[in-house]
Amino acid sequence: MPDLNITCEPRGDGLTFLTAEGFLDAHTFEKMEKTINALFDEGKYKLVVGLEKLDYISSAGAGVFIGAIGVAQENNGNLVLLNPTPNVKEVFDLLGLTQIFPIVGSEAEATAFFG
């Protein structure tokens, strides 16, 4: 069954890089939500989510990031999307989220974003 795999890599500069691989939909979104909430519980609010291996996202998946970005920003952090696949980028475009979420093309850009 298509699933969602998440890896999580804290960096020394206070940033946490996540990568999402597979399918982020109404079946798998809770896995991403729990991962992000666990990072928030640890006081990690500067998140970079790598989407270059994410094949599919629906509104339930995008909703996880919508719910998280405000919490991150309120705690002097942010949620940056890294390299979304064309399919995933298209969904963010349709929802009007590309104007709201920081989207970068490389890890260096993500690091620079947090300055």
Partner: peptide, 11 residues
């Protein structure tokens, strides 16, 4: 929607 952190209602 994003400001309110609403996760649902976009389908």
């Amino acid at each position: 929607h994003v400001r309110a952190g609403r996760k649902n209602g976009l389908g």
